[in-house]
Write a protein that binds this DNA or RNA. Structure first.
Lengths: 213, 213
DNA sequence: AACCTACAGTAACATTTATCACAGAAAGAA
DNA sequence: TTCTTTCTGTGATAAATGTTACTGTAGGTT
């Protein structure tokens, strides 16, 4: 298991890995578990070693708006930022594929930042990449129409899983884009007519590789 | 002038202030200056000591989408994140009120993080508050309609200046919300009819204090 | 005064997105 | 099989927003 942590976080120094093993607690969660709610206080930084976590913003009406996914080798930027002052979370985190995580108590954060160069760099890089990702989300909703956002969404999914099939229902996609199922169905149909995708039940195959680029 | 830096950044230690004075370069920019463009490499972290800088995202069509404003005592989070690896900027920064800034060479970032506790805390807090602000922006465009966004926008402005008048033309507002002038005019007129605002040329007075809360 | 320009108001229309209503197909359960 | 549920497709319609076109007005300039 020590081995795998080193594999998943290749940039961590051996000392850091050892420290994590020593101070962190290994935990598993099933798909569907909500790890973090808006308004909740955060007490741990979360490192993902297996599975997939969805980070989203929840609207008052219960709408979910996808921000990004966390996968093995990544960490929750929000938990890092907030732990620094034990702030409240402003987002929701839901397990979408059974996960294994390392929970790092918040007291470790500041300490490791000073003691472990590789931790420091990991944290900064996590901030940077997540900020960038959220800016991209803003771009999409601010400047793009639903059909472009849908294409972007599908591409992101296929990139994430490394395959060209997206196994989601129209309803699930609609929820994450904060629109209605009918709109998604219609737009997907148009994309199929343009030859970009092939639609199956609970699955969308991306055909055009140009589109995937 | 050393004095004022201490006043503007009250949490900085005296040693840190001295170090900043020593290594940073004081610069002034006029309103209208673009300090940072999308795609540009960042070589400095920017501390604002006077004036106001607008941070926005630019669409392909040239549309501007307001993210937030930077004011004295604040720093550009993007410049901090990016400098760590000398990355490209993903945003635009434009001076909206003549500013004075301290430019901190990127090499100082990492060094000070280790040496100055008050710098470390400032950087973390900057990350946190900006991330939060951007999440709020996402909320607004994802879940709210234009009339609500307009109200939020006006409130934010009056909060920022501490007064109840917003001195902007409809066109300027429309640009920042990435909509058209006509839409803003229409919605403002409705708000006036509801007794929320009073419309003057180049100025919107917020009347209802309930609304301002 | 006469003129110009930026700003604001508003009607008419186009487009996009949301909502409602319903029908059929696929998968699973009884 | 039959029943049931979930998923998908699609038309009709409503609502929000974007666009075009035109008018008037306030302020500044000559």
């Amino acid at each position: 298991m020590q081995n795998s942590l080193k594999n998943i976080f290749p940039n961590f120094s051996s000392e850091l890995i050892a420290t994590i093993e020593e101070n962190g607690s290994h935990q598993d969660f099933e798909a569907g578990t909500i790890l973090m709610r808006t308004g909740q206080y955060i007490k741990n930084t979360v490192l993902i070693t297996k599975g997939k976590i969805k980070i989203y913003r929840e609207g008052e009406d219960g709408g979910e708006f996808l921000m990004y996914y966390l996968q093995p080798g990544q960490a929750c930027a929000i938990s890092m930022i907030c732990t620094a002052k034990s702030e409240k979370s402003q987002i929701m985190a839901k397990v979408v594929e059974d996960v294994s995580v390392m929970m790092i108590p918040l007291q470790m954060m500041d300490k490791w930042m000073m003691e472990h160069r590789s931790w420091y760099e990991f944290v900064i890089e996590t901030y940077r990449s997540r900020f960038e990702e959220v800016l991209e989300v803003v771009d999409n909703i601010a400047f793009r129409s639903m059909d472009e956002r849908l294409e972007f969404y599908l591409k992101k999914h296929s990139d994430a899983c490394g395959c060209s099939e997206v196994n989601l229902s129209h309803q699930e996609i609609a929820t994450e884009l904060n629109t209605s199922r009918e709109v998604v169905s219609r737009l997907l149909k148009k994309m199929e007519q343009r030859g970009l995708v092939k639609l199956n039940r609970n699955q969308i195959e991306l055909l055009n590789t140009n589109f995937t680029n």
